[in-house]
Every structure is written in C-alpha cells, then in structure tokens.
Design a protein around this nucleic acid. Structure first.
Length: 808
DNA sequence: AAACCCCTAGCG
DNA sequence: GCTAGGGGTTTG
C-alpha cells in the first residue's frame, strides 16, 4: 500500500490550497499530520505543512516525493488542524492563511538560486553579460533577483542563461535555513550512585568533581543544565566529561526554550465570595463537556479570581486551559497573576514576541510542557493538548475581531473550538456584546451574574453634564462643573482621570477665508494637528507634514484649528491647575519606549494627580481606582455611522466609569455630553446594561442588524476610482439574481467607504445581509469569483469580511 | 539567428 | 511566490 501526503505550502502560496506528494517507504512513519515537510515545487523546494495522510491520489499528477520531514512531533495538533479547516471555510480564505497567522513567520525555508562566477575569461558578446560578470567579480555570489536589483533592470535571466551555457557562471540551488531555529542546551543527570571504591577513585584527588557531583545529586531529578552549573562552578565541562566517562552522569542535549521575560506576581487564592463561588461552581460542574457561559459581572466584581480557580481545577483534571485577553501589552497584571499561581505551566502568545520566542512558546504548548496559554486574538489558535477550558475575558472588546487578512473573530472561533474540544467556555464582561447577550437570553449560553463589586466600594456616582449651549472648544474641553471638581480634587490631593478619545492637539485645520480644510494627499481625511511634534499628522497613513503658516489654497494667514485632542486638553488642564502633576497617555505618548509602563507606575504610586488619556487608559487592570473620572465628550463616538456605535460608546463609558472608586471611598464620574438623553449615555450613567440592551436590540431589530441577522461586507480597493467603482458595480450585478431568488438576502450598496481614499487607494463597499450565514458566505464567494478576473486586471482588490465590525 | 524582454501558466 | 518557457521584438 502506498502512502501520500496532502500538504499546504507555508508560507501560503495564493491559488494553491493543497498539494499531494508521495511518501517513500522509509518515511511513512515520520510523515504525520501537523508536521512541516520539505517538498519540491517546480524548480525549487519549499516547506509545507502536512494536512493529512491519504492512501490514494489523483492519477493525473506525476507525484514527487516528500523530501524531508522537519519536525519530530506535530507542530499543529490534529484537533487544531480541524479548527484551521473550519476557519478557512467560514472566513473564505486559504488554510495557509490561517496557519500563517497561527504559527507565525520565520519557521519556513525555501530554496533559491545562487549565481557563482567560475571562469570570467570566456565572456559572451552581449553587453549585459559584461555588467553581470563585473558585478560578480566585485562581490560575492548572489541570487538572480539581487543581481537584477543591483543593476536596476527587471531581470537578468536571459544573460545568465547564456553565461551559464558559455561556462562563465554556475547557478546552484541553495536551501535557506529557517530563520527560527530551536536552541539547545546540555543537561547533566546523575544516573548511578558510585560505590565507596569508585567514589574514592573519582573524587579522592579531585574535590571539584565531588562538589559538582554532590550538587547534582541534591538537585531535583538529580539533574541540572550546563548553564546552571556554569553559574556555580567555573568551567564545569571537563569535570562533567570525566563523570560521564565514569558512567556516573549522563549528558543529554535538550531544547532550550526562549521564554519571554515575564513579571510574576505571587498571590494566594482568596476565598471567593458567595456570588463568585456560585458562578465558579456552575462552570466547574460542567468541566469535561461543551458548555458556554456568559459571565456578566460589573467592573471589579472579581471575575479574574473565578478564572484562576477554574484554570486550577482544569489543570488538576490533567487538561489544559486557554485564556484570551483583548490586548496583552495592557494586561501584564493578569499574566503576572497566572505566573504566580501556575509558574512555568504558563505560556504567553502575542505579537510583541520575537519570532524565536513565539516559536518556543508554541512548541512548549504543543508538547504539553505548558498547559496554560494566555494571549490576545491569535492565541485562540494555541496548540494546546487536551483542551479543557476556554476563557474569553472582556468578550465584547472589538479587538477580538481581526481587521485585515483573515478577518476572524477570536471569540466566535473560541466558542467553536470549545464545542469541538468538548469543554466549557466562559465569556466574561461587564458590558456583554449584543450577540452574546442574545445567546444568553435565549438560553443558548448560561448566564452567570455578579451584581456586586468584590471590593467594599460601591459603584461610582455618575453625573451627566449637559453641554448644550456651551462651546466645548472655547472652554478648552473642560466645562465649568468638571473644572470646579477637578480643582477641588487636586487641592484635596485626589487623583483624576480625564478621558478623551482623540489624540493630537486639534482634529483639523481650516481656513476661515476660503473654507478649505487641510487634507492628507493620500487619504480623504483631514490632517490632525500635533502641536508637540509641530506637525500635521494623518492618522490613516502616518503621513507627517510641517504646519503651514498660511492657507496652501488661498495663501491667506487665516488658518484656525478645529476640534480638540488630548494634547490641547493637557494644555487647558495645566492652565486650570498649574501646580498639579499631569501626565498624558495615548498612542503618541506611548511611542516613546517604556513610557507607558513608567506613567502607569507613577500613577499607581500616586505620583501623578491628573492623567489624561484615550481609550488606552480604559483597558486592563493597570489603571487603579481614582476619586474623579471626567469624560470630556461622551457622545464623541456616537457620530460614527455604524450600527455598533451605541454599543461601543456604552461599553467605553462603563469601562471608564468603572475606573472610579476602587479604593476606599466611592468615586465620582462626570460625563460631559451634548446628547444626555441618548440611551448609551443615560444607561451608562446608571450602570444599567439591561436597559441599554433592550433599547439597542429593539433598534437593531428594525433594520435587521446583528444579532438578529448576519452581515457580510465586500470591500473593493484600488488605485483608480473608476476601476474600483466599476468592479463594485459588477459585483452588485452578480449578486442581483441571488437576491432576486432569495427573499432573505438584502443588499446595501455599492457605496464609497466613509473614508473614500486611504494611502492612495480608493475604497468601495457592499453590505449583504441575511438570516443565514451559509447563504451569505455563498453569495459573497460567488460575487468575488465572478469579478475576480476583471478585478485583477484593473488592480482592484476584492476583500470579504464575514461578520464585519468595521462597516465604515 | 541570436539576444533580449515581458508575461503568465503551472507548480503535485 | 517563483520559475521556466512561450512568443514577440530588437540587435548584430
């Protein structure tokens, strides 16, 4: 019986989903699903991941052999491969795309051609040949692509062909090593206790041998690594060699994991209060089976302790646990807690890891050496073995939805993964997403509620200040009421948090003579004024320009700034409370390395009186409680033409408000707004999620927006407006018969995106809506396929966003 | 006729 | 993503 391997290239190759190779007899045992292999493809060799072993192959292919197996154990466990398949199907992308985002880059190798000069005397006639030879004479052997680049021509292939024929050069295929290699270390282990005679013989005149030996015997497992020993004994290598040849010690090479530096915060598990206990118990009873829970707990209700206890129980059952958090960089504290409780059993996966660190954490998990994985979005694909529990903290957080590439939603994938693994999943939040809330009210998810804070402080008092009739900008962002309380709080020595979700100084510059607003030349958006950097800054393409003195359009000295950002707010706070210690936390301030951490440290230590920030300050547990929280412009994010604007605003306001009064006394929150009656603001002021959800769901029902129905967004992007418009319309026409045939299918668009141009690319969109997700996916795939060819010709990219979060 | 250039099909 | 090879064009 012959064996074949179905593989997918890694990194992925567009248009190639799977390839089939034959497996030679001596490799049949080694080739297993989830392993990387080296395979020939065309004229070169590439790495690929084995998806399956199959016993038959399409006879129309003349199959090549798998050349080498790169792993000893599967890099991707079998159940994770199944999840990858599902994601590729659901999100209409290739398995390779999903695998690439799971494993990351740097783990693949491929061959390339290298040109070597052997005999420069027999030059060909062509001028190009001469230049190529000159270049090779001067430097080292290089690839055809680099030769072409150095000579600033498209290709040198034909010159090389003739040079090769004349015997001037040779072209070899060289295999690149993967960029990430495992690191090894030597471990010494005592395997035999010497009897008295041998001991005298070995140690009699060699006290150092005895010392090393005695140290090793005292170690756990009677073993230690070479680097550990080196830190105690100077150059222990020769001693170990002697002990090894005497048969006392065995030296082995083992993989050395590059674990990221992590803070460890040692705490003891507190006794859970009755509400926590009850919630924990409900999940605990269902360990070992699929059971989705929505853990709805107000801020500071002690959700984290429930997570920790459930993870402990899962490990005790011999299973592994996955904890997803919105942004790992802002949740160091949770990582520290986990490390404190579970030590080296914890692995961290996030984008800030180096390729080597990520790979080693990945291997630690996939070998079962780490059984708790914590990470952001992409950690939902962590290669855990015997998965027994998934927790998604802050399940409502929009960062779980990937905005480009494979546009997956980590929370949704997590629920599916839990179902496949047959384990409980806990979605924790103070402000559930409408989707999860509906599942809970329909009893598809079990609702667990924590109504009270675990701390003695009650929820803060929230006051809504009606800004109508006031010019927020003229007041520098701080109205009279907020200003009065800010002053009082600073004088009383309290800490104040001011929240404004816009960075920069002013949102735009406009000319009062000709009315022109200064726009980015690559994007159809206004440029933000950054006064500290003395620049106009495009928040879409990162373009930076000097601030012009006069209007570039009419040359009048008539430019004035509009809107208000954190930098301007900082200025007005300094004017209002000149003696206060003030700090700002936003993406601009965080750009200076390490500044975020030091600002947060100072804040927690009470060395800062007023902290100004964007939504960075609302996330995670790093910002401790304060006496006063000021929301500068609560309805700011309601202006976005997106059906989720209310939900986002509500969640954001609750989160900001939750920062108040975590310590001894009850905090105060002041929300300034032009829309005090808006449900998102009114409900947030009363900490009343249920009321907000009722109103919001009713609103969405009218238009059939999620969670009532599902959405798919088709996006069109390209450098020419006309081409993008044309392809978008062609796609709409391709969809028309489907819409006609199916009464449940609705179409909105094509229409230009809110920001019509980003980085020089024009953007159009089509929204498709239906109750049936499969019908939607089919329609989207059909539309894309129908316009694919024309789109390629017109350099228009067609992107499909399943369950989109960003509609504008 | 050879050399050069550009494009794209097909890779298992 | 790469490469070899097809076909059209230029060059000596």
């Amino acid at each position: 019986v012959s064996l074949y391997a179905s593989v997918t290239p890694l990194p992925p190759i567009p248009e190639i989903e799977t390839l089939t190779y034959s497996v030679s007899d001596e490799m049949t045992d080694r080739v297993q699903p989830g392993m990387r292999v080296l395979v020939p493809l065309g004229a070169r060799r590439i790495t690929a991941l084995v998806l399956a072993r199959v016993d038959s192959a399409d006879p129309k292919f003349k199959l090549k052999d798998v050349e080498d197996v790169l792993d000893e154990s599967p890099v991707v466990p079998a159940d994770l491969l199944a999840l990858v398949e599902w994601m590729a199907e659901y999100y209409l992308c290739s398995r390779g795309d999903v695998l690439a985002l799971a494993i990351g880059r740097g783990l693949t190798s491929s061959s390339r051609r290298v040109v070597k000069l052997v005999d420069p005397t027999t030059l060909g006639a062509a001028a190009k040949n001469r230049v190529v030879v000159e270049l090779l004479k001067a430097g080292r052997p290089m690839s055809p692509a680099r030769l072409a680049a150095a000579l600033k021509v498209r290709s040198v292939d034909s010159a090389l062909a003739s040079l090769k024929k004349a015997g001037v050069v040779t072209i070899d295929e060289v295999l690149d090593a993967p960029k990430v290699k495992p690191r090894f270390q030597t471990r010494a282990r005592v395997i035999r206790i010497p009897d008295e005679g041998l001991a005298t013989q070995l140690f009699g005149r060699a006290p150092k041998r005895r010392e090393v030996y005695e140290h090793l015997v005292a170690c756990p497992d009677r073993s230690a690594t070479l680097s550990e020993l080196s830190s105690i004994f100077p150059s222990p290598k020769s001693v170990l060699a002697a002990l090894e040849s005497a048969g006392i010690v065995k030296l082995t090479r083992e993989e050395d994991y590059r674990s990221p530096e992590l803070d460890t915060e040692v705490t003891t598990a507190p006794t859970l209060n009755p509400a926590q206990q009850e919630a924990m118990q409900s999940v605990s009873e269902r360990l070992g089976q699929f059971a989705p829970f929505l853990l709805f707990g107000v801020t500071a209700s002690g959700k984290t302790e429930i997570y920790l206890e459930l993870i402990r129980q899962t490990l005790e059952r011999g299973e592994s646990a996955l904890l997803l958090v919105p942004e790992i960089s802002l949740t160091h504290q949770v990582v520290g807690l986990l490390r404190g409780r579970f030590g080296d059993d914890v692995a961290v996966l996030h984008s800030e890891l180096s390729a080597g660190e990520r790979w080693d954490e990945w291997r630690r998990i996939s070998r079962g050496h780490a059984r708790v994985a914590i990470g952001a979005r992409s950690a939902v694909l962590a290669p855990l073995l015997k998965l027994g529990l998934i927790i998604v903290d802050e399940e409502h957080d929009p960062s779980y939805k990937q905005g480009d590439g494979v546009r997956y939603h980590a929370r949704d994938v997590a629920v599916l993964r839990a179902r496949e693994a047959g384990c409980p999943i806990v979605l924790g939040t103070a402000t559930p997403s409408m989707e999860s809330w509906r599942h809970a009210t329909q009893e598809r998810y079990t609702l667990l509620t924590l109504e009270e804070r675990a701390t003695p402080t009650p929820l803060p008092r929230v006051e809504v200040v009606d800004l109508r009739g006031h010019d927020l900008i003229a007041q520098g962002g701080i109205g009279d009421y907020l200003g009065k309380h800010l002053k009082e709080n600073v004088e009383a020595g309290g800490q104040t948090l001011l929240f404004l979700n816009r960075r920069g100084f002013a949102s735009s510059l406009q000319c009062y003579e000709c009315g022109e607003t200064l726009e980015c030349k690559n994007c159809s958006v206004g440029l933000t004024l950054h006064r500290d950097a003395k620049a106009l800054h495009c928040h879409h393409c990162d373009n930076r320009l000097p601030v012009p003195k006069r209007c570039p359009s009419c040359d009048q000295d008539a430019l004035f700034s509009q809107g208000i950002g954190t930098q301007r707010l900082e200025e007005s706070v300094r004017a209002l409370v000149p003696t206060a210690r003030i700090a700002r936390l936003d993406r601009d301030a965080a750009a200076t390395k390490g500044s975020t951490a030091s600002v947060l440290r100072d804040w927690r230590a009470g060395r800062i009186d007023v902290l100004i920030g964007t939504q960075m300050i609302t996330k995670g547990h790093d910002v401790a409680g304060v006496n006063l929280v000021g929301v500068i412009h609560a309805d700011q994010s309601l202006g976005v033409p997106d059906f989720r604007a209310s939900e986002r605003t509500f969640a954001l306001l609750c989160q900001v408000a939750g920062r108040a009064g975590r310590g001894e006394e009850r905090g105060r929150v002041i929300m300034q707004t032009y829309q005090p009656e808006h449900p998102a603001i009114a409900a947030a002021a009363h900490h009343d999620f249920r009321r907000f959800a009722d109103l919001e769901l009713a609103d969405r029902a009218e238009l059939g927006y999620p969670p009532w129905q599902r959405l798919v967004l088709l996006r069109f992007e390209g450098p020419q407006l006309g081409a993008v418009d044309r392809i978008a319309n062609a796609a709409a026409r391709a969809l028309a018969p489907l819409v006609e045939a199916s009464p449940g299918l609705r179409l909105r668009g094509p229409a230009p995106a809110l920001v019509e141009r980003i980085k020089g690319r024009f953007r159009f969109k089509i929204e498709i809506q239906s109750e049936s997700p499969s019908e939607l996916r089919m329609a989207a795939a059909e539309a894309r396929a129908r316009v694919a060819e024309a789109a390629k010709k017109a350099s228009v990219r067609v992107l499909i966003d399943i369950d989109p979060y960003d509609l504008v």
